[in-house]
Design a protein around this nucleic acid. Sequence first.
DNA 1: CATCGTTTGTCTAGTGGATGAACAAAGTTT
DNA 2: AAACTTTGTTCATCCACTAGACAAACGATG
Lengths: 401, 401
Amino acid sequence: MKSTKTWNQQVVKQENKALVLETIIANSQISRADIATSTGLNKGTVSSLVKELLDEQLINEVGPGKSSGGRRPVMLLFNELSGYSIGVDLGVNYILGVLTDLRGNICQEKKTNISDLTYEEILEELFAIIDTLIKSAPSSPYGIVGIGVGVPGIVNKDQKILLAPNLNWKSIDLKSELENKYNLPIVVENEANAGAYGEKNFGVGKHNDNIIYVSVGIGIGVGLILNGELYRGNNGFSGEFGHMAIEADGAKCSCGSNGCWELYASEKSLLFNAQRSDLKETLDGELSLETIMKLAESGNDTAQQLFNRIGKYLGVGINNIINIFNPEQVIIGNQMAEAAQWLEPSMMEWIEEQSLWFSRKDLTIDFSGLQTHSTALGVAAFSAENFISSKVFQENNKYAL
Amino acid sequence: MKSTKTWNQQVVKQENKALVLETIIANSQISRADIATSTGLNKGTVSSLVKELLDEQLINEVGPGKSSGGRRPVMLLFNELSGYSIGVDLGVNYILGVLTDLRGNICQEKKTNISDLTYEEILEELFAIIDTLIKSAPSSPYGIVGIGVGVPGIVNKDQKILLAPNLNWKSIDLKSELENKYNLPIVVENEANAGAYGEKNFGVGKHNDNIIYVSVGIGIGVGLILNGELYRGNNGFSGEFGHMAIEADGAKCSCGSNGCWELYASEKSLLFNAQRSDLKETLDGELSLETIMKLAESGNDTAQQLFNRIGKYLGVGINNIINIFNPEQVIIGNQMAEAAQWLEPSMMEWIEEQSLWFSRKDLTIDFSGLQTHSTALGVAAFSAENFISSKVFQENNKYAL
DNA sequence: CATCGTTTGTCTAGTGGATGAACAAAGTTT
DNA sequence: AAACTTTGTTCATCCACTAGACAAACGATG
């Protein structure tokens, strides 16, 4: 009792075709017979669907596999090189672009540091990176199948950027801009949502269906994977956890509210507190996440205390998240995740002390393993997925003989 | 690219049959022809599915409708009286049971006040209420189709009650107990989840798909309707918003954490603050939500201040919820909702001042319109839904001639 | 009141896709 | 070499939806 769609044989075929392809993607090498047993479909059905997928070059036949006491099976392989996808993480002070195959393997990567640029200047840098990546793509049947961009701001359901405070953007239609220039399918998504998707597909979240990805950078954003799917909220702007109040009568935030989480647990907060400490005198260079990390490594107590404090407040917010969502996994990503070793002890101490026992059950808390690539990989995966879906679910492909 | 189910014609038929039934339920009177056009199915298909539904007595033919220039249509009607469902709201100090038809109309209702009873005594009262309701049910083709119970505690995915602090329950398998006694389908669900479902089906949430239901009673629970479906979390215990920290260094809560929301915004908190005020002297009777409300109505300033304070802190938590979920609607229910007029001004003031403008867009905030019936109606609806699904999706019904 | 056009609902032949069984091809085991 | 296994294709069959024909029922019109 859920869908309002009408069902007919065509839908059945498409769904089954998608199921077969998913099975091939999930199992690096698999025979038709194995697909039939694992999907429950008839051998003949599998054969005909596989034939179509072969025609579309989405899969390949590789040589015969090992016999298990009879005829040797023909092994099938997902043709991840039939197309390429581009994912861009548009950060506050950097742009990171990756070229991936359809399985999300990084083939090419390009990063530029930026600071205080206008919208037009950023656009130029963005185009430059995308152009480079397009040129570097090997030739393939489908070429570049799409471009995805992750941005640190509020993106609505039409993929318009309503607000990106740290970039000083307001009401920007980046999607149309890119569509006009490249004439390719474009995806624009919030950075945290994309990161969550990246971790779910390629990172430590691979095997979980209820994941909360906490992106701790200059601000804090959260991406929600609920029941295996990205939850976007009514208009597309869920996950504004950064502005969750954790001190009702705390300091005033730029958002208008009081005691927001990101005032206590973000990179912004770390730098703010560092300014007021004695670190400035110890350090002759600039205060930044990296330099403070180096000081902590060299045994500087003040630096370690600063991270401890961030860790504690990360724990406060994550504890709320755990109580609210009862997730399987919480993943901490983005820049701050690089300081994992300095944050983890105080963070875990707080969480273990404060969380409800039944919520801690079956819960893992991880730092991102994709380094700072979660977002770029996530948006690249969006484009790749969209492409694959469009191939499988395309309208009745008439055979024009 | 989502389901891992194999598709065949039987599935198509079941889904279409469900679609036809849904359409009939949604439109109080509708003809076969109208169903065909509104679902996109063929007239013949609709005819044969309707025939099956008639055989199963799930729908009825009522007389001919109005002609629109040709043959008069035969109007079809959902047979809501083909079975009855029982829903029980097992509160901390009351038990409320309702008997509803399959559409959720209340046919019979019974409430008992309880206090400080043992598990066995509560069970006895519960059985008594259910027995009364079963006896009062009119005769019908399918009789009682199921019993649902909403409880103020943590319910896991197997519907076992892990913890109900205010009832002093731990690891209770109420579902099995009821199944053994009544031999009927039983649903045990968290009170807030059930309330959310009730509001979504019968209350002010009828037309929205992303609803956050905040149940403010002795404690605070939250039920989440995300993308039109109840979200339960990994193990079934999401929504423990009551233990969301809104003052990181606030008072110690019984849950082990600090500064939990329900210490500031629940009925418990209201009574606690009332104790410390001068109300005790003003009032000769007992301090309770009702008596404090009466004082507020009579113009007592202290009482109004107490509600103001609760309202403000409700606003703090709801503001967090808005930022996190970007819902279409927030509904405040349970006992505290009866004090709506005293809470609303300070609550809304806080929310309007603090929330992000783009989150306020398209958002409505309501107090429950079902009075205190949300939970009972919600669990009754669960049972009714389950029954209808089981009829439509039953295994290939072979005709044993 | 007869005729025509319209709408409703049923019926039948046809279509698309899944299924099961038969079968050939290509192995392994004895 | 013979017997058994496993793989993958082919083909007849089944099942549910579809299109279109058709009869029944009704309003409008002359």
